[in-house]
Amino acid sequence: MLKRSIENLGNRTIQGVWRIGFAARFFLAMLLHSGTAFRRFGLTIREMYFTGVLSLIIILVSGLFVGMVLGLQGYETLQTYGSEEALGILVALSLVRELGPVVAALLFASRAGSAITAEIGLMKATEQLSAMEMMAVDPIARVVAPRFWAGVISMPLLAALFSAMGIFGGYLVGVQLIGVDEGSFWSQMQSAVDFEQDILNGVIKSVVFGVAITTIALFEGYDAPPTAEGVSGATTRTVVTSSLAVLALDFVLTAFMFRGIN
């Protein structure tokens, strides 16, 4: 009994390590074969449409609602300290530093990441990737790399739009609905948000999340067993793994970026 379970554990560990190695090689190959994605940028643009543009609705609507909730909750809290005018700062900083990159990335993982995995997995299952190899076209260069760069480019743009919509939502609730002073809402926000500390760090976060999500999604698709169950399992794993990766990376990045800021 014990021996069996130790064997099992060992087996799984070996398989896990082997898979990580395979993923690392996949990632390197993807970077090495990225030439096509830039030389024929049309391929990447096309994928940006599928991953980025088609995620717009969910990103914009979620951003608006998150911002409106921030407006309500923030006002409630700030009011007890008599500093309602700081609502602009609270909304903007929460969005730009944290919620924008993180929530947009979580939405992106479930909207675009799952679609990428399912598409690549099905292309593999129906031998489209083999057919491409037999036509002397490298699927990593032609199919995988453009999707990777499309995701990496789309992610910060989506996060920025999410934050912008959120700030607008906060403004709607805070200023228009509750009646916080409009002038101080914007001017306080303007003076408190720092370009390098806040905006740039937010962008860096979302680029890192974009790399993580698209890499996981592409790898899961490429590595999926060529069957219906295989592809559906891989799609689920993409959403779970990349969401957890986003949250973990966010913690690590935040710890590094905002050390020593009050």
Partner: peptide, 12 residues
């Protein structure tokens, strides 16, 4: 080389 796959393998 050209290859016709058993199940077509057209790009969908």
């Amino acid at each position: 080389m050209g290859m016709l796959f058993q199940f077509g393998a057209l790009f969908t």
